[in-house]
């Protein structure tokens, strides 16, 4: 489902070249649940960005559901995301000027397979599924953090993605709300067979994943799959 090979990323900062990721390779099977862990600044989010095709690596290759991202231009990668990928962010990233339902509908509208409005009603189903049936017409500012993240979750699953990337999804939530969000996420992962890639520095959260990749200073220092 997801494979990367010798991923290396460098940034220029103050005239010096800074290597943030070095020679990272692994393969994730469909339906898998991977947690990428590590301390702040270890390159977790950078790796997530490369895996999702949000950025280009300095070296190395990425395959997402059998499609190599490297040769694709930005718009082609965007189309791959629209079709196959879901996202959940630490700070929810809902569009503030759209209602909850409109936010959930965006991936549906963007995915070419969903043309013709056949998706009407799906957003409401998903909002009901995350327990927000009555708040479809509310704007993000009118929702609590937990509610916002649940809207983001509904949005992430709305286009029935093959793979879901989550970047510190509970980082801005209290423990109880965070746990309920993770419960929802794993439930949906089981129901829909979605592959899950979770970036976190929360050990408890990482423990729920079937596989853990630990990063430090841009290199993989531990991989539970390799250890097993």
């Amino acid at each position: 489902m997801l494979r990367c090979e010798s991923l290396t990323q460098t940034y220029r900062s103050g005239g010096r070249e800074l290597t943030v990721l070095k020679d990272i390779s692994f393969t994730l099977e469909p339906g898998g649940f991977l947690a990428i862990v590590g301390p702040s600044g270890s390159g977790k989010t950078t790796l997530l960005g490369l895996l999702a095709g949000l950025d280009r690596p300095a070296h190395g290759r990425v395959w997402l559901d059998g499609t190599e991202l490297g040769p694709l231009d930005e718009d082609a990668r965007a189309r791959v995301r629209a079709e196959k990928v879901g996202f959940v962010f630490q700070s929810f990233q809902l569009i503030p000027t759209l209602t909850a339902r409109e936010n959930v509908e965006i991936p549906l509208e963007l995915a070419p397979a969903n043309g013709g409005g056949s998706w009407k009603g799906r957003a409401d189903d998903l909002l009901a599924r995350v327990g927000l049936a009555g708040r479809a017409h509310h704007y993000p500012a009118q929702l609590s953090g937990g509610e916002q993240q649940r809207v983001a979750l509904a949005r992430a699953f709305s286009n029935r993605p093959r793979i879901l990337f989550a970047d510190e999804p509970t980082g801005n939530l209290d423990a109880r709300t965070g746990a309920s969000v993770i419960d929802l996420m794993t439930e949906l992962n089981r129901e829909l067979g979605t592959t899950l890639v979770l970036v976190t520095h929360d050990a408890e959260l990482a423990a729920r994943a079937r596989r853990t990749v630990r990063l430090a200073d841009g290199v993989v220092v531990a991989d539970s799959a390799a250890a097993a």
Partner: peptide
């Protein structure tokens, strides 16, 4: 918004 839409799969166009 533009960045988010593109993350979610919108093309630049």
């Amino acid at each position: 918004e533009g960045a988010l839409l593109r993350t979610l799969g919108a093309t630049r166009g």
